[in-house]
């Protein structure tokens, strides 16, 4: 059974494009034009994932994210305008799983949907060995290797890397990382320093990172092996 995706967008042209593209990617789709319709369909049709445009006519997209997540853990991927960093970070912090910025390529969108549908590694239980490019991490034995060389990470560095691995392929906002590791008193400055140090140890070219990717203004994403 292929996954069912609920497309929420008020633009017919975008809905048509998404319907065609997702069908080609092997998904079934249903469509809602307004937030009200979307809430009804999310309850009635039980889609596996919601693809949500933040700029809806009848409701702030953010509020819709909050409403839907209040009732279920349904994954949400947000479509946002390029200059709306605030909106997408807010949506992510409220529980949206990922975002795609308009205009987007279909391949990118399908990759995001696939990652979001794949349940979080942490929930799936242990995936003992993680591999991405030159990086391999043994989560059971806490062994980190880059290009077959042992890498020595501090406990805090290891925690950050482990969190990213558990959410591999998904964007993690600065705030969500800090909340998980430091509690409420986190400091984005510290996080940056740690990420820089981790990159120095695991990336081939730390100035052009290929494993820990920066989502400017939003957070980080661990690249997953395709």
């Amino acid at each position: 059974m292929t996954a069912l995706v609920l497309i929420v967008d008020d633009e017919p042209a975008i809905r048509r494009l998404l319907r065609t593209g997702l069908a080609a990617g092997g998904y079934r789709t249903i469509e809602a034009e307004t937030a009200a319709e979307a809430i009804a369909m999310a309850g009635g049709e039980s889609p596996d994932l919601i693809l949500l445009d933040l700029g809806l006519p009848d409701m702030e997209g953010i509020d819709l994210v909050r409403t839907i997540h209040a009732g279920s853990a349904m994954p949400i991927v947000v479509l946002s305008a390029r200059d709306d960093e605030r909106g997408k970070v807010a949506a992510l912090d409220l529980g949206a799983d990922d975002y795609v910025t308009k205009p987007f390529g279909m391949a990118e969108l399908i990759a995001r949907i696939r990652t979001a549908l794949r349940h979080c590694l942490a929930q799936e239980g242990a995936v003992p060995l993680f591999q991405s490019g030159p990086l391999s991490v043994d989560l059971v034995r806490r062994i980190v290797k880059a290009a077959d060389q042992d890498v020595h990470l501090s406990p805090r560095e290891y925690d950050i890397l482990k969190l990213m691995i558990l959410h591999a392929g998904r964007v993690l906002t600065h705030r969500s990382i800090m909340a998980k590791l430091w509690g409420a008193g986190g400091d984005v400055q510290q996080l940056r320093v740690y990420v820089r140090q981790i990159r120095q140890k695991i990336e081939v070219d730390p100035e052009r990172p290929a494993i820990i990717l920066t989502e400017t203004g939003v957070g980080y994403r661990l690249a997953v092996p395709e």
């Binding site: 984005v188 820089r196 100035e207 990172p209 920066t214 989502e215 400017t216």
Partner: peptide, 17 residues
């Protein structure tokens, strides 16, 4: 402006990407 402490190297990297 949403000014926050930013790592110039990181920004260069993401821009190059």
């Amino acid at each position: 402006l949403r000014t926050q402490p930013a790592d110039l190297g990181e920004l260069v990297g993401s821009t190059l990407a």
